[in-house]
Computed example of a mutant assay.
Amino acid sequence: MEQLTARYGPEQDGPRDGRGVMAGSAAYAMDSGEISRARAFVRDFLSDARTLRGVDVPTRALEIAQLVVSELATNVCKYAPGPCLLDLEVDGDRLLVTMWDSGAVLPSALQGDPVREGQHGLEIVLALCQSFEVRREPVGKRVRVQVSLLEDAEDDDAPVGLFPW
């Protein structure tokens, strides 16, 4: 993994909650080994958000963010091998995840099928994120999702430690 930048500080739009916006970026040459590095980047970034900015990042939100990035990175490995850029931004109670890759084909979720083996990644991302946007770029595409950093009241009884990374 080659980390491009890790910039922390207020952005021009201003903070949502007085703590400012934190942003970080990393670049990857996408092969299967890079998926775990992308997850680690998310974990380290959100840990820094806790430590440096006092952002409340519940364990479940951290796990969801890692899973979402893992699924997006897996799609890049499968369908658009080559360079990939991952941008993370914490703004108040939300994490914005933007992933650029050089592939021209836009992702689309398959119809739900519990007996289908594989190809559930985008279904998972859509179920876990508050927003999903994909747009073509002059080269490739950019996928942007929003993950809530709030503890969901419905998830109070959910087991902690669902994802072991």
Score class of each variant (00 low, 15 high):
Met1Ile: 06
Glu2Thr: 08
Leu4Gly: 04
Ala6Val: 14
Tyr8Ile: 13
Gly14Glu: 07
Gly14Leu: 10
Asp17Val: 04
Ala23Met: 10
Ala23Cys: 08
Ala27Cys: 09
Tyr28Asn: 07
Glu34Val: 01
Ile35Leu: 08
Ile35Met: 04
Ile35Phe: 04
Ala38Phe: 10
Ala38Ser: 13
Arg39Leu: 11
Ala40Leu: 15
Ala40Ser: 15
Phe41Pro: 11
Phe41Asp: 15
Phe41Asn: 12
Arg43Cys: 13
Asp44Pro: 00
Asp44Glu: 12
Leu46Ser: 12
Ala49Asn: 05
Arg50His: 08
Arg50Asp: 08
Arg50Gly: 11
Leu52Asn: 10
Leu52Val: 12
Arg53Ala: 09
Val55Asp: 05
Val55Gly: 01
Asp56Lys: 11
Pro58Val: 07
Leu62Glu: 07
Glu63Ser: 07
Glu63Asn: 02
Ala65Met: 02
Gln66Lys: 13
Leu67His: 04
Leu67Pro: 00
Thr74His: 09
Asn75Gly: 13
Val76Cys: 01
Val76Lys: 00
Cys77Thr: 15
Ala80Tyr: 06
Pro81Lys: 09
Cys84Val: 08
Leu85Gln: 08
Leu85Gly: 08
Leu86Phe: 10
Leu86Lys: 06
Asp87Ile: 14
Leu88Cys: 09
Leu88Val: 10
Glu89Asn: 00
Glu89Thr: 09
Val90Trp: 03
Val90Pro: 04
Asp91Lys: 05
Asp91Ile: 02
Arg94Asp: 11
Leu95Ile: 08
Leu96Thr: 15
Thr98Cys: 15
Met99Pro: 04
Trp100Thr: 12
Trp100Glu: 12
Ser102Lys: 01
Ser102Ala: 05
Gly103Glu: 07
Val105Ser: 05
Pro107Cys: 07
Pro107Ser: 06
Leu110Pro: 10
Gln111Ile: 13
Gln111Pro: 14
Glu117Asn: 07
His120Phe: 03
Glu123Trp: 03
Ile124Val: 12
Val125Gln: 01
Leu126Asn: 04
Ala127Lys: 15
Leu128Ile: 07
Leu128Glu: 08
Leu128Asp: 02
Cys129Pro: 05
Ser131Met: 00
Ser131Thr: 06
Ser131His: 00
Phe132Glu: 01
Arg136Pro: 04
Arg136Lys: 13
Glu137Lys: 01
Pro138Glu: 08
Val139Gln: 11
Arg144Asn: 06
Arg144His: 02
Arg144Pro: 02
Gln146Phe: 02
Ser148Ile: 10
Leu149Gln: 06
Leu150Pro: 03
Leu150Arg: 14
Glu151Gly: 14
Ala153Asp: 13
Glu154Lys: 02
Ala158Thr: 15
